[in-house]
Nucleic acid binder design. Structure first.
Lengths: 142, 142
DNA sequence: AAATTACAGTTACGAACGTAACTATATCAA
DNA sequence: TTGATATAGTTACGTTCGTAACTGTAATTT
Protein backbone atom coordinates (compact mmCIF):
# COMPACT_ATOMS: atom_id res chain seq x y z
CA UNK A 1 0.00 0.00 0.00
CA UNK A 2 3.00 2.28 0.39
CA UNK A 3 2.60 3.41 -3.19
CA UNK A 4 -0.82 4.87 -2.42
CA UNK A 5 0.55 6.94 0.42
CA UNK A 6 1.87 10.43 -0.15
CA UNK A 7 2.97 12.51 2.75
CA UNK A 8 2.23 15.90 1.25
CA UNK A 9 -1.31 15.07 0.31
CA UNK A 10 -2.05 13.36 3.62
CA UNK A 11 -4.74 15.37 5.34
CA UNK A 12 -3.34 15.25 8.89
CA UNK A 13 -0.11 16.78 7.55
CA UNK A 14 -1.82 19.39 5.44
CA UNK A 15 -4.17 20.36 8.22
CA UNK A 16 -1.45 20.62 10.79
CA UNK A 17 0.76 22.78 8.60
CA UNK A 18 -2.01 25.12 7.64
CA UNK A 19 -3.25 25.32 11.18
CA UNK A 20 0.17 26.21 12.55
CA UNK A 21 0.51 28.89 9.95
CA UNK A 22 -2.85 30.49 10.59
CA UNK A 23 -3.25 30.07 14.30
CA UNK A 24 0.34 30.80 15.29
CA UNK A 25 0.25 33.86 13.10
CA UNK A 26 -2.41 35.32 15.33
CA UNK A 27 -0.85 33.96 18.48
CA UNK A 28 2.19 36.15 17.88
CA UNK A 29 -0.09 39.15 18.28
CA UNK A 30 -1.52 38.38 21.70
CA UNK A 31 1.73 36.86 22.87
CA UNK A 32 3.79 39.92 21.99
CA UNK A 33 1.18 42.38 23.18
CA UNK A 34 0.07 40.74 26.42
CA UNK A 35 2.34 37.75 27.03
CA UNK A 36 -0.70 35.49 26.79
CA UNK A 37 -0.74 31.80 25.95
CA UNK A 38 -3.24 30.37 23.50
CA UNK A 39 -5.33 28.89 26.31
CA UNK A 40 -5.50 32.25 28.01
CA UNK A 41 -6.58 33.99 24.83
CA UNK A 42 -9.23 31.39 24.19
CA UNK A 43 -10.66 31.68 27.68
CA UNK A 44 -10.61 35.47 27.46
CA UNK A 45 -12.30 35.39 24.08
CA UNK A 46 -14.96 32.95 25.24
CA UNK A 47 -15.81 35.02 28.29
CA UNK A 48 -15.72 38.17 26.19
CA UNK A 49 -18.12 36.75 23.68
CA UNK A 50 -20.54 34.89 25.94
CA UNK A 51 -20.32 36.77 29.23
CA UNK A 52 -20.04 35.08 32.62
CA UNK A 53 -19.52 31.31 32.47
CA UNK A 54 -18.32 28.51 34.70
CA UNK A 55 -15.07 26.70 33.95
CA UNK A 56 -16.95 23.66 32.71
CA UNK A 57 -18.95 25.78 30.31
CA UNK A 58 -15.70 27.20 28.97
CA UNK A 59 -14.46 23.66 28.44
CA UNK A 60 -17.61 22.89 26.46
CA UNK A 61 -17.30 25.99 24.32
CA UNK A 62 -13.59 25.74 23.57
CA UNK A 63 -12.78 22.04 23.71
CA UNK A 64 -9.80 22.90 25.89
CA UNK A 65 -8.71 20.43 28.54
CA UNK A 66 -10.05 21.33 31.97
CA UNK A 67 -6.57 21.69 33.45
CA UNK A 68 -5.73 24.20 30.77
CA UNK A 69 -8.86 26.14 31.57
CA UNK A 70 -8.13 25.99 35.27
CA UNK A 71 -4.63 27.35 34.77
CA UNK A 72 -5.68 29.96 32.26
CA UNK A 73 -8.43 31.21 34.56
CA UNK A 74 -5.97 31.46 37.42
CA UNK A 75 -3.55 33.40 35.30
CA UNK A 76 -6.16 35.77 33.91
CA UNK A 77 -7.48 36.30 37.42
CA UNK A 78 -4.01 37.30 38.55
CA UNK A 79 -3.96 40.01 35.91
CA UNK A 80 -7.24 41.17 37.43
CA UNK A 81 -8.95 40.63 34.10
CA UNK A 82 -11.62 38.43 35.61
CA UNK A 83 -13.38 37.98 38.91
CA UNK A 84 -14.90 34.75 40.12
CA UNK A 85 -18.11 34.44 42.07
CA UNK A 86 -19.08 31.29 43.91
CA UNK A 87 -22.59 30.04 43.25
CA UNK A 88 -24.75 30.10 46.38
CA UNK A 89 -26.78 27.00 45.59
CA UNK A 90 -23.94 24.83 44.33
CA UNK A 91 -20.70 25.88 45.86
CA UNK A 92 -18.64 23.79 43.46
CA UNK A 93 -19.46 26.28 40.74
CA UNK A 94 -17.67 29.54 40.18
CA UNK A 95 -19.09 32.01 37.74
CA UNK A 96 -16.27 33.70 35.88
CA UNK A 97 -16.70 37.19 34.55
CA UNK A 98 -14.35 39.62 32.88
CA UNK A 99 -13.54 42.88 34.65
CA UNK A 100 -13.56 46.19 32.82
CA UNK A 101 -9.85 45.74 32.18
CA UNK A 102 -10.42 42.23 30.86
CA UNK A 103 -13.17 43.41 28.55
CA UNK A 104 -10.99 46.20 27.27
CA UNK A 105 -8.16 43.77 26.46
CA UNK A 106 -10.67 41.50 24.78
CA UNK A 107 -11.96 44.34 22.62
CA UNK A 108 -8.45 45.33 21.64
CA UNK A 109 -7.71 41.76 20.59
CA UNK A 110 -10.97 41.60 18.67
CA UNK A 111 -9.78 44.53 16.64
CA UNK A 112 -6.50 42.75 16.00
CA UNK A 113 -8.51 39.64 15.14
CA UNK A 114 -10.60 41.46 12.58
CA UNK A 115 -7.45 42.88 11.01
CA UNK A 116 -5.79 39.47 10.93
CA UNK A 117 -8.93 37.93 9.52
CA UNK A 118 -8.95 40.47 6.71
CA UNK A 119 -5.36 39.65 5.91
CA UNK A 120 -6.08 35.94 5.51
CA UNK A 121 -9.31 36.71 3.66
CA UNK A 122 -7.45 38.90 1.19
CA UNK A 123 -4.83 36.24 0.70
CA UNK A 124 -7.31 33.48 -0.05
CA UNK A 125 -9.93 35.55 -1.77
CA UNK A 126 -13.47 35.86 -0.46
CA UNK A 127 -14.83 32.78 -2.22
CA UNK A 128 -12.07 30.43 -1.12
CA UNK A 129 -12.18 31.84 2.37
CA UNK A 130 -15.88 31.05 2.70
CA UNK A 131 -15.38 27.64 1.15
CA UNK A 132 -12.61 26.83 3.59
CA UNK A 133 -14.58 28.02 6.61
CA UNK A 134 -17.46 25.81 5.58
CA UNK A 135 -15.31 22.73 5.09
CA UNK A 136 -13.57 23.21 8.43
CA UNK A 137 -16.90 23.58 10.17
CA UNK A 138 -18.06 20.38 8.54
CA UNK A 139 -15.00 18.59 9.91
CA UNK A 140 -16.03 19.39 13.46
CA UNK A 141 -18.56 16.59 13.19
CA UNK A 142 -16.04 13.99 12.04
CA UNK B 1 -15.05 46.43 16.25
CA UNK B 2 -16.13 43.79 18.73
CA UNK B 3 -19.41 43.38 16.87
CA UNK B 4 -17.53 42.21 13.76
CA UNK B 5 -15.73 39.53 15.67
CA UNK B 6 -17.17 36.08 16.06
CA UNK B 7 -15.20 33.38 17.76
CA UNK B 8 -16.70 30.45 15.92
CA UNK B 9 -16.09 31.86 12.49
CA UNK B 10 -12.58 33.03 13.33
CA UNK B 11 -10.22 31.09 11.12
CA UNK B 12 -7.50 30.39 13.72
CA UNK B 13 -10.17 28.75 15.88
CA UNK B 14 -11.74 26.78 13.08
CA UNK B 15 -8.40 25.62 11.78
CA UNK B 16 -7.16 24.58 15.15
CA UNK B 17 -10.28 22.61 15.97
CA UNK B 18 -10.38 20.82 12.67
CA UNK B 19 -6.68 20.12 12.78
CA UNK B 20 -6.87 18.60 16.24
CA UNK B 21 -9.71 16.41 15.11
CA UNK B 22 -8.03 15.15 11.99
CA UNK B 23 -4.44 14.93 13.04
CA UNK B 24 -5.00 13.62 16.56
CA UNK B 25 -7.33 11.00 15.12
CA UNK B 26 -4.44 9.51 13.24
CA UNK B 27 -2.01 10.11 16.08
CA UNK B 28 -4.00 7.70 18.24
CA UNK B 29 -3.07 4.99 15.78
CA UNK B 30 0.70 5.33 15.85
CA UNK B 31 0.68 6.22 19.52
CA UNK B 32 -1.27 3.14 20.54
CA UNK B 33 0.54 0.84 18.17
CA UNK B 34 4.14 2.00 18.62
CA UNK B 35 4.16 4.55 21.45
CA UNK B 36 5.38 7.17 18.97
CA UNK B 37 5.04 10.93 19.27
CA UNK B 38 3.91 13.06 16.36
CA UNK B 39 7.45 14.27 15.72
CA UNK B 40 8.69 10.70 15.57
CA UNK B 41 6.00 9.68 13.12
CA UNK B 42 6.75 12.66 10.94
CA UNK B 43 10.45 11.93 10.84
CA UNK B 44 9.82 8.26 10.14
CA UNK B 45 7.39 9.11 7.37
CA UNK B 46 9.76 11.61 5.79
CA UNK B 47 12.65 9.18 5.76
CA UNK B 48 10.34 6.43 4.53
CA UNK B 49 9.13 8.54 1.67
CA UNK B 50 12.34 10.26 0.60
CA UNK B 51 15.06 7.84 1.65
CA UNK B 52 18.23 8.88 3.46
CA UNK B 53 18.32 12.52 4.56
CA UNK B 54 20.21 14.74 6.97
CA UNK B 55 18.48 16.26 9.99
CA UNK B 56 18.41 19.66 8.34
CA UNK B 57 16.75 18.24 5.26
CA UNK B 58 14.11 16.70 7.50
CA UNK B 59 13.55 20.11 9.05
CA UNK B 60 13.05 21.57 5.58
CA UNK B 61 10.61 18.86 4.53
CA UNK B 62 8.53 18.81 7.69
CA UNK B 63 8.77 22.30 9.11
CA UNK B 64 9.49 20.72 12.50
CA UNK B 65 11.76 22.57 14.89
CA UNK B 66 15.31 21.26 14.77
CA UNK B 67 15.29 20.25 18.43
CA UNK B 68 12.21 18.15 17.81
CA UNK B 69 13.94 16.49 14.89
CA UNK B 70 17.07 15.92 16.93
CA UNK B 71 15.08 14.26 19.71
CA UNK B 72 12.90 12.25 17.38
CA UNK B 73 15.93 10.95 15.49
CA UNK B 74 17.58 9.94 18.74
CA UNK B 75 14.46 8.11 19.85
CA UNK B 76 13.95 6.32 16.52
CA UNK B 77 17.60 5.36 16.50
CA UNK B 78 17.19 3.77 19.92
CA UNK B 79 14.43 1.58 18.52
CA UNK B 80 16.96 0.56 15.88
CA UNK B 81 14.64 1.87 13.20
CA UNK B 82 17.32 4.08 11.68
CA UNK B 83 21.06 4.18 11.37
CA UNK B 84 23.13 7.29 10.96
CA UNK B 85 26.19 7.63 8.82
CA UNK B 86 28.61 10.51 9.16
CA UNK B 87 29.52 12.25 5.93
CA UNK B 88 33.22 11.88 5.11
CA UNK B 89 33.65 15.28 3.50
CA UNK B 90 31.64 17.29 6.00
CA UNK B 91 31.64 15.64 9.36
CA UNK B 92 28.91 17.88 10.71
CA UNK B 93 26.45 16.01 8.51
CA UNK B 94 24.86 12.71 9.39
CA UNK B 95 22.90 10.89 6.78
CA UNK B 96 19.90 9.22 8.37
CA UNK B 97 18.46 6.08 6.86
CA UNK B 98 15.73 3.71 7.97
CA UNK B 99 16.67 0.13 8.81
CA UNK B 100 14.62 -2.79 7.54
CA UNK B 101 12.66 -2.69 10.77
CA UNK B 102 12.08 1.03 10.38
CA UNK B 103 10.89 0.61 6.82
CA UNK B 104 8.57 -2.15 7.85
CA UNK B 105 7.00 0.02 10.57
CA UNK B 106 6.70 2.83 8.05
CA UNK B 107 4.89 0.59 5.59
CA UNK B 108 2.51 -0.65 8.27
CA UNK B 109 1.68 2.94 9.19
CA UNK B 110 1.21 3.83 5.54
CA UNK B 111 -1.46 1.16 5.35
CA UNK B 112 -3.10 2.62 8.43
CA UNK B 113 -2.74 6.06 6.83
CA UNK B 114 -4.48 4.98 3.66
CA UNK B 115 -7.31 3.51 5.70
CA UNK B 116 -7.62 6.65 7.79
CA UNK B 117 -7.50 8.79 4.69
CA UNK B 118 -10.34 6.82 3.18
CA UNK B 119 -12.41 7.33 6.32
CA UNK B 120 -12.03 11.11 6.18
CA UNK B 121 -12.55 11.10 2.41
CA UNK B 122 -15.80 9.19 2.81
CA UNK B 123 -16.95 11.55 5.50
CA UNK B 124 -16.33 14.68 3.46
CA UNK B 125 -17.12 13.30 0.04
CA UNK B 126 -14.57 13.21 -2.76
CA UNK B 127 -15.28 16.71 -4.08
CA UNK B 128 -15.06 18.47 -0.74
CA UNK B 129 -12.01 16.46 0.18
CA UNK B 130 -10.16 17.63 -2.91
CA UNK B 131 -11.37 21.17 -2.39
CA UNK B 132 -10.13 21.17 1.18
CA UNK B 133 -6.75 19.71 0.27
CA UNK B 134 -6.30 22.41 -2.34
CA UNK B 135 -7.21 25.23 0.01
CA UNK B 136 -4.91 23.95 2.73
CA UNK B 137 -2.07 23.68 0.27
CA UNK B 138 -2.70 27.24 -0.80
CA UNK B 139 -2.44 28.38 2.82
CA UNK B 140 1.11 27.06 3.03
CA UNK B 141 2.21 30.15 1.15
CA UNK B 142 0.49 32.57 3.50
C1' DA C 1 47.84 30.51 9.03
C1' DA C 2 45.16 32.73 12.44
C1' DA C 3 41.02 34.83 13.46
C1' DT C 4 36.23 35.24 12.32
C1' DT C 5 32.02 33.80 10.82
C1' DA C 6 28.65 30.30 9.51
C1' DC C 7 26.48 26.06 9.92
C1' DA C 8 24.85 21.03 11.73
C1' DG C 9 23.26 19.21 15.44
C1' DT C 10 22.75 18.67 20.72
C1' DT C 11 21.77 20.05 25.31
C1' DA C 12 20.22 22.83 29.41
C1' DC C 13 16.56 25.07 31.23
C1' DG C 14 12.30 26.91 32.28
C1' DA C 15 7.48 26.92 30.54
C1' DA C 16 3.50 24.37 29.16
C1' DC C 17 1.39 20.05 28.66
C1' DG C 18 -1.82 15.80 29.82
C1' DT C 19 -2.90 12.01 32.94
C1' DA C 20 -4.26 10.73 37.06
C1' DA C 21 -5.04 11.54 41.63
C1' DC C 22 -6.99 14.54 44.65
C1' DT C 23 -10.44 17.97 47.47
C1' DA C 24 -14.75 19.63 48.08
C1' DT C 25 -19.45 19.58 47.22
C1' DA C 26 -23.77 17.67 45.61
C1' DT C 27 -26.90 13.85 44.33
C1' DC C 28 -28.71 9.36 44.50
C1' DA C 29 -29.92 4.92 46.60
C1' DA C 30 -30.79 1.79 50.31
C1' DT D 1 -29.80 9.18 57.14
C1' DT D 2 -26.01 7.17 55.70
C1' DG D 3 -23.11 5.20 52.28
C1' DA D 4 -22.07 5.18 47.38
C1' DT D 5 -21.62 7.68 43.23
C1' DA D 6 -21.07 11.78 40.45
C1' DT D 7 -19.42 16.35 39.38
C1' DA D 8 -16.52 21.00 39.59
C1' DG D 9 -12.33 22.30 39.84
C1' DT D 10 -7.23 21.99 41.41
C1' DT D 11 -2.81 19.97 42.04
C1' DA D 12 1.21 16.69 41.59
C1' DC D 13 4.01 14.55 38.53
C1' DG D 14 6.37 13.09 34.74
C1' DT D 15 6.67 14.35 29.67
C1' DT D 16 7.19 17.40 25.87
C1' DC D 17 8.08 21.84 24.21
C1' DG D 18 10.85 26.06 22.39
C1' DT D 19 14.52 29.40 23.23
C1' DA D 20 18.98 30.11 23.75
C1' DA D 21 23.32 28.64 24.57
C1' DC D 22 26.50 25.39 23.42
C1' DT D 23 29.93 21.86 20.74
C1' DG D 24 32.15 20.59 16.90
C1' DT D 25 33.26 21.28 12.07
C1' DA D 26 33.75 23.96 7.82
C1' DA D 27 34.27 28.16 5.14
C1' DT D 28 35.76 32.84 4.78
C1' DT D 29 38.47 36.80 5.78
C1' DT D 30 42.71 39.20 6.96
Amino acid sequence: MKSEFNLHSFLPFLMHHASEKVSLGFRDIYRDRYRMTRSEWRVLATLGQYGALTATEIVTHTGLHKTKVSRAVFSIEQRRWLKRCQNENDRRLHLLELTAQGLSAFRALCDAGVTYDRKVRDFLGEDDFKLLSGLLTKLNDL
